[in-house]
Design a binder for these strands. Structure first.
Lengths: 149, 149
DNA sequence: CTCCCTGCAAAGCTTTTGCAGCCTA
DNA sequence: TAGGCTGCAAAAGCTTTGCAGGGAG
């Protein structure tokens, strides 16, 4: 935990951003809720529990900044809210998502399923891929089991 | 063109929605701009050229309705605006997108690149896939060529 | 001392909703 | 004539911006 924070701090410093307490608090909330896909407001509320004086605008600005230096990825699941996802340590691609259309849960697939597909796209469509967004919509394991009862 | 409109009309009728002139105008704009990825406002402005009395709210309601009966797919490329894409005739999946991070252009890949990946996800993660969203971010052919000069 | 950063409030956008009137079946 | 549909305007989010104050280097 602490070493991941340290790495992120280093990366921010390298990009010549200051390591303010508000920014560190934001990073901590993201780390503590890595499995979730928090919106800016979610992050704001969680930070507020410990640091009530923080402003929502600062959270937005920090998340934007973290996106810019590739520490988090922005994603939207179509509910009109941007969500922020920590990039996995050492990951060189944005992980995939499974969105359940029944219960709304969002799971992650960290394994990169796309290298072959990407090779194909790069040659066939002459497009140099930097990143991807892959989301499956369907019925999750739990809802499938509930249905069968 | 006319026969595709007819098919869409049939589908709306089948879902017991009325075929008002405003709805037909919306469908026509989508068909005439199939290569683009229009936002609700884009559609609204294009309809207004021919039918100035239409309201923006109606456009939103119509697009929502068309999404519901699977005539269009909603997608967001992260600029905070929902865009609407006609589902290709006979397509049983939502086509993929190539978003250029330099010029902002959005191209489509109609070929379904994911069947193998989906089979893997369904068995390995026990998730029943209904649909997908796949977008690649990178440098398009044109920008790549421009760079090399 | 300078410049970056922050909090607050206001503004900006996109999208949704309430409502009265209209049209059609 | 009942119900769905529409236009307008207002409301409701989410996100960004302006600004003055504050703090770190």
């Amino acid at each position: 935990m602490e070493d991941r924070i340290q790495k992120i701090k280093d990366q921010m410093k390298k990009s010549s951003y200051k390591l303010t307490s508000q920014r560190e608090a934001t990073v901590r909330v993201l780390l503590e809720n890595e499995a979730d896909h928090l919106s800016a407001e979610d992050v704001y509320l969680k930070i507020k529990e410990k640091s009530p004086e923080i402003g929502l605008a600062t959270v937005y600005r920090t998340l934007e900044l973290l996106t810019e230096i590739n520490i988090v990825d922005k994603i939207s699941f179509g509910d009109g809210v941007q969500r922020f996802d920590l990039r996995k340590e050492g990951a060189n691609h944005f992980h995939h998502h499974l969105v359940c259309i029944k219960c709304g849960s969002v799971d992650e697939i960290e394994e990169d399923l796309l290298p072959e597909v990407e090779r194909k796209v790069e040659t066939k469509y002459d497009f140099q891929i930097h990143d991807h967004r892959l989301t499956f919509h369907g019925i999750c394991k739990k809802c499938k089991e509930d249905d069968q009862q």
